[in-house]
């Protein structure tokens, strides 16, 4: 492996450096996420036309689809961070992986809830054993397993390493689950209802969708950075840089 990778990561991997970096980025990411989400919701709820088949009910996709996408995207980001953390033993990577899990689990949960809310008017049922819904449910269990494993250790770093390992096991597992559920579905049901058919999507529906995707990504960054900062403060509370930080804060407050 090239030397510059660990070198570069080591520089950003220093907790105080990352703490300051995250603190600088977070408000911008959060502000931009809120603005974009507002724009996307306006576009989705008021500008985009009603669907000729599904009426107004389809508008839930402006929440559902970006969440579904984020549930997978965050898993990918988490897996990369977990790998980096395990191989190069970089603390920040472990923290990023572990703090990504609750955010990813939240997006997965939102995907499942909005999917079932959408399913009621469309399919006439809250839940169907559709391949994608089932895979998403399994993904939620993987997220919960990672969070549970992380918190079941006395030693945070050891917990982070074990849970990172589980993240990688899950990364191998998710495609296998998806494949097997697909196979199972064709065995047990005819054809399932397609959520997004091959029908191409109207431009006035597309741009709010893409805007919302950007907004969820920025929200993830903002949320992750806030969580990582909190985790770093807690786990490094005995360190000089945290003391300095607190002293500085007290000094400026007085």
């Amino acid at each position: 492996m090239a030397n510059w990778v660990p070198l570069w990561l080591h520089r950003l991997g220093s907790p105080p450096v990352f703490y300051r970096f995250a603190g600088a980025v977070r408000p911008w990411a959060l502000g931009l996420a809120l603005v974009l989400a507002g724009v996307a919701l306006y576009g989705g709820l008021f500008v985009a036309p009603a669907d000729y088949q599904q009426g107004d009910a389809y508008r839930i996709i402006f929440v559902h689809v970006p969440s579904a996408w984020m549930s997978l995207f965050i898993y990918g980001a988490m897996a990369v961070a977990a790998f980096v953390g395990l191989v190069w033993r970089i603390k920040i990577a472990e923290v990023v992986a572990m703090e990504s899990a609750p955010v990813g689990a939240a997006f997965t949960f939102i995907t499942l809830v909005t999917g079932s809310l959408w399913g009621k008017p469309m399919w006439g049922t809250w839940w169907t054993w559709d391949a994608r819904l089932t895979s998403e449910l399994v993904l939620l269990f993987i997220y919960l397993g990672v969070i549970g494993l992380y918190h079941s250790f006395e030693d945070r770093r050891q917990g982070a390493r074990a849970a990172s390992f589980l993240v990688l096991v899950g990364a191998v597992n998710v495609p296998i689950v998806h494949f097997s559920v697909n196979w199972w579905n064709t065995l047990h049901q005819g054809s399932t209802v397609r959520l997004l058919g091959p029908s191409h999507i109207e431009a006035s529906m597309l741009w709010p969708l893409l805007t919302m995707m950007a907004a969820t990504k920025l929200y993830y960054i903002a949320s992750l950075f806030a969580r990582v900062r909190a985790d770093l403060i807690a786990s490094e509370s005995g360190k000089g840089w945290v003391r300095e930080l607190l002293a500085h804060r007290d000094g400026s407050g007085a």
């Binding site: 030693d155 945070r156 770093r157 786990s235 490094e236 005995g238 360190k239």
Partner: peptide, 9 residues
């Protein structure tokens, strides 16, 4: 020069 740190302590 063997050292061991636990939780950075």
């Amino acid at each position: 020069a063997l050292r061991f740190l636990r939780q950075d302590e």
